[in-house]
Design a protein around this nucleic acid. Structure first.
Lengths: 349, 349
DNA sequence: ATTAGCACTCATTCATATGGAGTGCTAATA
DNA sequence: TATTAGCACTCCATATGAATGAGTGCTAAT
């Protein structure tokens, strides 16, 4: 539908304006375009076309006698229709880091860092929510006279533990019974599948030790995480200073704060993590982003899936004139490196 | 020795200059002091004294016709001799947060945040190194045909786990034997006490399963942490923007980067964490700090001790004209809240 | 339909002028 | 001898204004 608004010449001119602006960050004038393109048109003609493009909302003038810069709508058009998908075979990305690091959280922190270094934008990576993940193994053991250790392992090899205080020692026989009880009832179940019936049954069978069962179930819930405390790893937040349009104290401070708070970043994530079966890449330009402080930025996110149902998000935040091609290319490569990583080797927390 | 340099009048004037500068952040002139103090001296006299103080190195002039600002030496004198130790009974600090949060790492993150909000400076809190901590309990269990889970609990109730791949399933009897072996040999030992002899003996007794023992020992080492990856929680890094002398892009960016990297921050810590039995509070003014990027800042740190040998550091970084009294007061209160917290309740990781 | 030409706008840059804060020094004073 | 008043001087900060130049919109010519 939008395409109808723009004939080929206007499209070419818009493309040229945006590409030029992405490079320089300066408003681009008619004379520049007149030479930059192979259209062989005078600056005057370009000026007329630019006036049209402005009226249509694709570009704006910062002030009367300046060149034009792309509007949000202009960027959107660029991302949707003009941009080339590079799909370079291999970026210089250090995949080996991913292969060799042991812990998932370190990998993710690394990913954030690599991406930030590579792109010169701020990055964030959310730890996966283990939504839908299943219990593989539960074990209680005596640590002390008055403490019991509960360990829970999930199908994705995520391990969580909790120390539970008990009023009096539990003998070995009881412990064996409890362990059997837990494993036989919970193994293979996802959080959503543990219903009140199961819980009641478990507690009943546990008798006087039902409080321990409660504690274990709490930990299970926490492990499989109704993602209330999504972890977010960030990097390169000072990259904002590299772009004049974001680097004045007020804006930079606001942005960096948002990255420090992390919580807010989660809102970007939850959105497209659950709702969509989207394997692709999401681009938010300016006000399209749900985060207010990023109204002058563009945000590009990708969803990765370490293993069945174990999903997280990688995101890049930069100026609206970011190098979308490079960013998306980088995201694709990293996404591919992360996808299915749990099936290839064993992770832990 | 220093006191000999300054008679009472000079001391009063210096004190007045510094206090005034701490408030305003502007160079302070002779006329201001003439009124600010109860000395009843004319500005001319003050000027003479200020010339002396400058010659002695306690204050400097940013440029010819400006007032004076404290030098590093001046601040040092202030901190050592002039400042009042407030020791307010209770600051408005939300101790309940500390009491009620469950996990140590969350507590520390909270501490960083509270402190940053309270002081308007950037803060960092290092997770404790469990140096000298002892093994309380080790357990191996079968998770899979080809995976074994190792769980290690220390005296301080720190729990770590690792999933170890094995080439072939291990039967229950062997597993019991290995568990007994590990516990009987390692329980009660600190990392430093596990020597090559112990290790050799263990491996010998484990026979064909010595590789598992190696893996467990690795995890033990990692748990008791030869603090190679000290965790650092930070907060309030954008507070730097509140102080003009630190808020230009270049400096702010550098500082915030340092906080983002976190590793560098560790150097501040290791220093006074191990060397000193110092229960007190450390102040680094300007170049006294080991971290280059903080040459225009002051850093105040305190060591806390969650439990026997479980020590970490809280630090505050701000402009040299920081409110030392308030900062040190805050640190004391938080330090008191954290000290011995592990003895009061059970923590975990 | 395109282009050349021109008047106009507005941000940026530079030099210059102005005001004020604060000093150092000297001479007068208690 | 210690203190103070007074004055010339320095230097920053801010304002002012002119010059520059990039870029536009419009009109008339091609």
């Amino acid at each position: 539908m939008e395409e109808l608004e723009l004939d080929e010449r206007k499209t070419k001119i818009l493309d040229a304006i945006i590409r030029n602006y992405l490079e320089t960050g300066e408003p681009v004038g008619s004379r520049t375009i007149s030479k930059y393109t192979d259209l062989n048109l005078s600056s005057a003609t370009i000026r007329n076309e630019m006036a049209d493009l402005e009226e249509l909302g694709y570009i704006v003038q910062p002030h009367t006698s300046a060149g034009r810069i792309p509007s949000d709508k202009g960027y959107r058009f660029y991302v949707d229709h003009l941009m080339e998908e590079k799909n370079r075979e291999v970026s210089e990305m250090k995949n080996f880091v991913i292969e060799h690091t042991e812990k998932v959280e370190l990998v993710l922190q690394q990913v954030a860092k690599i991406l930030a270094n590579n792109t010169n934008y701020a990055t964030m990576v959310t730890a996966p929510s283990y939504h839908g993940n299943k219990v593989k193994f539960i074990q209680l053991s005596n640590v002390d006279e008055d403490q019991v250790l509960a360990v829970i392992v999930t199908e994705a090899n995520l391990v969580k533990n909790k120390i539970i205080p008990v009023s009096e020692p539990i003998d070995n026989e009881t412990m064996l019974k409890l362990n059997f009880l837990l494993n036989s009832n919970l193994n293979g179940l996802a959080l959503q599948e543990i219903n009140l019936g199961t819980i009641a049954k478990l507690k009943e069978q546990a008798g006087i030790h039902s409080d321990i069962i409660s504690n274990v179930l709490d930990t299970v819930a926490e492990t499989m995480g109704q993602d209330d405390d999504i972890r977010v790893y960030t990097s390169g937040t000072t990259n904002f200073f590299k772009y004049p349009e974001l680097s004045d104290s007020a804006k930079a401070s606001e942005l960096i704060s948002t990255f420090e708070e992390k919580q807010q970043l989660a809102s970007l994530v939850t959105e497209n993590l659950l709702e969509e079966e989207n394997t692709g890449i999401q681009v938010y330009i300016g006000n399209e982003s749900p985060i207010q402080t990023m109204r002058d930025c563009s945000v590009v996110t990708a969803t990765y899936e370490l293993g069945e149902g174990v999903r997280g998000t990688i995101g890049i935040v930069g100026p609206k004139r970011m190098d979308y091609e490079k960013v998306m290319d980088n995201l694709k490569v990293l996404k591919n490196s992360l996808d299915g990583i749990l099936d290839r080797r064993n992770g832990q927390t």
